[in-house]
C-alpha cells in the first residue's frame, strides 16, 4: 500500500501518462473500491549497468504490475530478463553492484532503501540456476530453513513444508540430499522452498527449463491455482510459451534491455511476428497465422493459444 506521502513523490517524479494512472489508483484505494486491484510493483525509468560492464543491461524500463496479475516475460537470451527480475526483489542493486537510475517500488517499498531479506519475503524469487539456491543436508531441511528464520511456529513450518512438497510432487525426495538430485529434481526443490515462504509476489526465472513437460505443466497449473485462489501476483520469464500464455494476463517482450511489447498475449501474437525477439509463439498460433495469411474460408480474429481453442473455432465454422 502506498502512504499519502509516497504517492505525492510519485506525482512529482512520474511522467504524465503514469501520473494519471497513479491518481486513479490513489483515489480508488482511498475510496476502498474493490474492482481495480492496487499496484504492487512500480518500476520507473529504470536503467542498470553491471559493475565493470560497458553495456546497459536495462534501459529506461517502465512497468506497473497490479496485485493478482499473471505476467509472462520473454525475449532473447541476454536481453535483460533476469536482471529485471533481480531488480524486483532488490538483488539489484543491493547484491549485484552497478550503476542504477530510476527506481523500483515493491509493495510500496523502495528497493534501494529496503534490506533484501525484507523484500524477498514479499517478492520470492526462484533463480534460473537452482544450484545457487540449495544448501541444506536434506530436501526437507532446505524448504524448512527459511521458515525457521522467519520464526514461524513449528506446526506451521511442518504444514507448509508438506504443502510445498505436495504442490511439486516431490514427497519422495524429502530425505534426499539436494546435491544428489537430477537437474530437474533440484529445480523442483528450489521452487518448493520459495513457495513455502508464501510471498505476495512470486517471481520465477525460467522455472520450467529443466523440468520434463508433464512436471512443467503441473508446475504452471499449481501456479495458476495459487494466482486464482490466493490472488498471488506472478511474474515468470520463459522461452517455452505454450504452457504459459493461455494463463497469462499479460505478455512483456524485452529486447536489449528495453521493453518492446506489453499487453494482451493474443493481441501481441496476432499483430506481429515476434521471432526477431527470439520469441516462439505456440505452434497452434503459428498455424492460425498461416491460415489468416491465406485469406481463405477460415479466419481467426483472435489467435488461439491452445489446441482446444483452435479446434473449437474450426468446429463452429462447419457447424
Amino acid at each position: 500500500m502506498y502512504t499519502a506521502s509516497t504517492s505525492k513523490t510519485f506525482f512529482l517524479e512520474s511522467s504524465k501518462g503514469d501520473l494519471r494512472e497513479m491518481l486513479g489508483t490513489d483515489r480508488r484505494e482511498t475510496e476502498g473500491e474493490a474492482e481495480e486491484a492496487p499496484v504492487i510493483i512500480q518500476v520507473e525509468n529504470l536503467s542498470f549497468r553491471y559493475y565493470g560492464s560497458e553495456q546497459y543491461a536495462l534501459r529506461n524500463v517502465n512497468l506497473m504490475v497490479k496485485k493478482g496479475e499473471f505476467v509472462a516475460l520473454a525475449g532473447r537470451s541476454g536481453c535483460g530478463k533476469t536482471t529485471l527480475l533481480r531488480c524486483l526483489n532488490g538483488l539489484v542493486p543491493n547484491f549485484y553492484e552497478g550503476e542504477m537510475s530510476g527506481r523500483v517500488l515493491v509493495d510500496g517499498k523502495d528497493t534501494r532503501y529496503t534490506p533484501t531479506h525484507i523484500i524477498s519475503q514479499v517478492a520470492g524469487m526462484v533463480f534460473q540456476n537452482p544450484d545457487n539456491q540449495l544448501f541444506a543436508l536434506s530436501v526437507e531441511a532446505d524448504i524448512a530453513f527459511p521458515l525457521e528464520n522467519l520464526g514461524l511456529p513449528r506446526e506451521v513450518i511442518l504444514e507448509r513444508v508438506e504443502w510445498a512438497l505436495n504442490a511439486l510432487g516431490i514427497e519422495d525426495l524429502r530425505y534426499r540430499s539436494p546435491f544428489e538430485l537430477s537437474g530437474g529434481q533440484k529445480q523442483k526443490v528450489a521452487i518448493a522452498s520459495v513457495l513455502a515462504m508464501r510471498p505476495k509476489i512470486l517471481i520465477l526465472d525460467e522455472p520450467t527449463s529443466s523440468l520434463d513437460p508433464a512436471s512443467a505443466k503441473n508446475l504452471i497449473d499449481s501456479i495458476v491455482e495459487l494466482n486464482k485462489r490466493e490472488g498471488l501476483t506472478i511474474i515468470i520469464s520463459e522461452h517455452r510459451l505454450e504452457l504459459l500464455l493461455p494463463h497469462a494476463d499479460r505478455l512483456i517482450v524485452m529486447d536489449q534491455g528495453a521493453i518492446v511489447r506489453d499487453g494482451d498475449p493474443k493481441l501481441i501474437l496476432r499483430d506481429g511476428n515476434l521471432l526477431v525477439y527470439g520469441v516462439a509463439p505456440p505452434k497452434v498460433s503459428e498455424v492460425a497465422r498461416y491460415v489468416n495469411a491465406h485469406q481463405g474460408c477460415l479466419r481467426f480474429d483472435e489467435i488461439p493459444l491452445t489446441v482446444r481453442e483452435f479446434v473449437e473455432k474450426v468446429r463452429r465454422l462447419i457447424g
Binding site: 505452434k283 503459428e286 498455424v287 492460425a288 498461416y290 491460415v291 495469411a293 491465406h294 481463405g296 474460408c297 477460415l298 474450426v314 465454422l317 462447419i318
Partner: peptide, 17 residues
C-alpha cells in the same frame, strides 16, 4: 510444418464447405 498444416486444413475445409 505449421504452414503445411494450415494448407491441408484449408484444403479439407473448402472441400467440405
Amino acid at each position: 510444418h505449421p504452414q503445411e498444416v494450415a494448407e491441408e486444413l484449408l484444403d479439407a475445409l473448402s472441400k467440405i464447405l
